[in-house]
Design a protein around this nucleic acid. Structure first.
Ligand SMILES: [Mn+2]
Ligand SMILES: [Mn+2]
Ligand SMILES: [Zn+2]
Ligand SMILES: [Zn+2]
Lengths: 145, 145
DNA sequence: ACCTCAGTTGCGAATTGTTCGCAGCTGGTG
DNA sequence: CACCAGCTGCGAACAATTCGCAACTGAGGT
């Protein structure tokens, strides 16, 4: 299955970077590979607990930091509150957050990526990163509670 | 001076919204009107303390929330850590953050604003808000530590 | 197979930024 | 000038994340 390939890719990525491959890390990688949404650290902790009942939240945070620094996962701070994480495979994308349901929709737009570079350049900068979040409500939905 | 006019505008905005005009709030408004950067709550607290030595940080936070909810100030969560605040007069703009110095550069770009609406629409949403932050380093700067 | 030890973990305490609870104070209306 | 809903200061509470430390363990060497 696809998850196995992803997990193996993650393990290989760890090994090749000299990151020690522990049971906890494998379990976290598996959860990340399986996740289709953008789970928070506590979400991930809860999921991993099924295989590793004694894993601590601190370990989840530490592992996510390691994977983030290795470029394997991406960390997002949507709106306020906790961080959300996702696998950094695939090409770059940004997010639209449904302001009513909190649902996260991914999108890519080459034009907006290009424009951001152009804007930075115009201001005398070289773009090194960006954060783009759209907030919206489903079009045509009556907004009645 | 320009600050006086801004402060009077703020006071009037408060009055017209039924928000009580206390000495602390006037002082915070004055600090906000005078600020050219994007101060944090503790920055603002420190500045306000010069006129109101006994003002508490909680009051600064509460007042900023009131002004935010009234649409008078804007709250930003750049990167991580504390929130930054600025007066919400003038037209909408976004921010480029110098990744090396932390300096914040403001910009407006009608094209990128338009594109965001178009993207949301394409995804079946009506855009209600967005967050756009560019991170960059000054072009042509040698990057040697 | 076993040793070894730097890297990793679990635990709880610390940190950071922000909010809350509450008793006392005060702006502004009558 | 009295009144009281709205504010304030204070410290404690909170939420998310990080840290300190002693115990543990992966993986390379023997
Ligand atoms: Mn995503
Ligand atoms: Mn600004
Ligand atoms: Zn992007
Ligand atoms: Zn914008």
């Amino acid at each position: 299955m696809v998850v196995d390939r992803s997990v193996e890719a993650l393990n290989e990525a760890c090994r090749s970077r000299g990151i020690r491959l522990t049971g906890q890390r494998k379990a976290i990688s598996e959860v990340m590979a399986r996740a289709q949404d953008h789970p928070s650290a506590t979400d991930i902790h809860e999921l991993v607990t099924r295989k590793h009942p004694r894993i601590s939240l601190a370990t989840v945070y530490r592992t996510l930091s390691v994977l983030r620094d290795a470029g394997i996962v991406e960390e997002h701070r949507f709106g306020e509150g906790r961080c959300h994480y996702e696998l950094a495979d695939g090409p770059h994308h940004d997010h639209l957050i449904d302001a009513e349901t909190g649902q996260i929709v991914e999108f890519t737009d080459p034009e907006i990526e290009r424009l951001q570079h152009a804007i930075a350049e115009r201001l005398g900068y070289r773009l090194t990163g960006h954060k783009l979040e759209l907030y919206g409500v489903r079009a045509g939905d009556a907004d009645q509670g």
